[in-house]
């Protein structure tokens, strides 16, 4: 696999969530991921972008930037916002913790990113923004659903 990279930036509107997952999964397609790997990446991107929209920008207008790097068999996805930031990252990453239960958040976003990617790092500064870095090695999972059609 030749090394490669891609950056997209878009407005923090909820109808860009599907755009974000599609664009990243289209870029990663050249790594010949399995259906499971594509699904995992889509879910993780969706979680990070949704968090920037509802938590980072609290549904106000802002820019979200996604950088994607392919280095050999590893994809690194970085989702950045310049939103309100996270004051207690450890608590935020606990499964079921949400600061917005009134919006019917399940608090499972970081848990899903962690479950579906190999590595997850969160950096954040209050009133400056949040950077979520996720990494996944493509082609190491043996079992897939095989013939299931997407």
């Amino acid at each position: 696999m030749e090394n490669n990279s891609m950056t997209v930036e878009f407005e923090s509107s909820s109808n860009n969530e599907s755009f974000a997952r599609v664009v990243v999964s289209a870029f990663v397609a050249r790594m010949n991921p399995t259906l499971t790997e594509v699904a995992d990446i889509k879910t993780a991107v969706s979680e990070a972008v949704t968090n920037s929209i509802i938590h980072g920008y609290e549904n106000n207008t802002g820019r979200i930037r996604i950088e994607t790097y392919i280095v050999e068999d590893t994809v690194t996805i970085i989702v950045k916002d310049n939103g309100v930031g996270i004051d207690n990252i450890e608590r935020a990453m606990e499964p079921m913790y949400t600061s917005k239960p009134e919006l019917e958040r399940s608090g499972m976003g970081f848990a899903f990113m962690e479950a579906f990617m190999d590595e997850l790092f969160v950096e954040s500064k209050v009133s400056e923004g949040t950077i979520v870095t996720m990494r996944k090695v493509i082609g190491k999972s043996e079992n897939d659903w095989g013939s299931e059609i997407d």
Binding site: L103, S106, F112
Partner: peptide
């Protein structure tokens, strides 16, 4: 349905 993230989980819990 072929895609769901944690927002779907929140919808069902609600």
């Amino acid at each position: 349905t072929s895609f769901m993230d944690s927002s779907g989980i929140g919808l069902i819990m609600g």
